[in-house]
Simulated scan of single mutants.
Amino acid sequence: MTVLVTGGTGGLGRPTTTLLRSAGHEVRVLSRRPGEGRATGDLSTGSGLADALTGVDTVLHLATTGRSDAAQTTHLLDAAKPAGVAHLIYISIVGVDEVPLGYYRDKLACERLIEASGIPFTILRATQFHDFVAAVFRPQRHLPVLISLDVLDQPIAVDEVAERLTELAASRPAGRVADIGGPETRPVREFAEIWQRAHGTHRPIWNLPVPGGMGRAMRRGDHTTALPGFGRQTFAQYAAADAARLDVADARRGSPGGTDEP
């Protein structure tokens, strides 16, 4: 089977592409820059998409810009239908129809475009990745406190989402399939505590309220799934691995280490 992956060089695209190739699929990664294993095309303009989709059976649409996903998805669909693509798989986010956030509304618009396209499809919604939660904490390494958010979250390992996408690529189009999430739902403050323990820091944690409808939806857990989730890796396991990577990086730089996270 020939598969085209959009967003194949991103955080989710890389492990997904690796798993697809390991499963024996011929994989093309859509990119604006030519290279080995790549198909040249631009989702923002539609340029090159027709050629990139020639002979493609399945498309995994993982690309995201955070601001123009619906426009890019429209260009992809316009090229995929005449190319005879038999299965389009789209990665979305749990709660896009519940949480009043601009990015979520754009993802929901993409879902609606795909559903109306006439192309056989599968839509998978996942909760936020562990990396997303960690990204709240990493930039604060020089602050005297660690600022958290007064909401719930259910992070999942990106590799586990890649596993599920690879399974779906080998299956028939199924419409919207069951949402997937991590193995635990906690207040973000608890994830902050876990992060500090893993990285050996002991700063005060300030809980920052998230205002408006978005805050209410996230405190209710509208962006989470029921437990037990699909994922197996806990945030503590992720944070411990991240701290170990920091120790290795410090050793390579000849650093004496320290108690601050990356």
Rank of each mutant, 00 (worst) to 15 (best):
M1F: 11
V3E: 01
L4E: 07
G7M: 02
T9P: 11
G10M: 08
R14F: 10
P15F: 04
R28Y: 10
R28S: 13
V29R: 14
V29F: 06
R33V: 04
E36Q: 12
G37R: 06
G41I: 09
T45G: 03
L53G: 10
L53F: 13
V56W: 05
D57C: 00
T58S: 05
L60K: 05
L62N: 01
L77H: 12
L77Y: 07
K81S: 14
K81F: 12
P82L: 10
I89R: 05
G102I: 09
G102F: 12
G102L: 12
A109M: 12
E111R: 07
I114D: 04
I114L: 01
G118V: 09
I119N: 01
D131Q: 15
F132Y: 11
V133G: 01
A135S: 15
Q140P: 13
P144N: 09
P144C: 09
D153Y: 02
Q154C: 01
I156M: 02
E160D: 07
R176V: 07
G181S: 02
R186I: 02
I194T: 14
T201I: 00
H202Q: 08
P204E: 00
W206E: 03
N207G: 06
V210N: 05
V210A: 12
P211A: 12
G212C: 08
G213C: 09
G213P: 05
H223Q: 09
A226P: 04
G229F: 00
R232Q: 14
A236D: 14
P256Q: 07
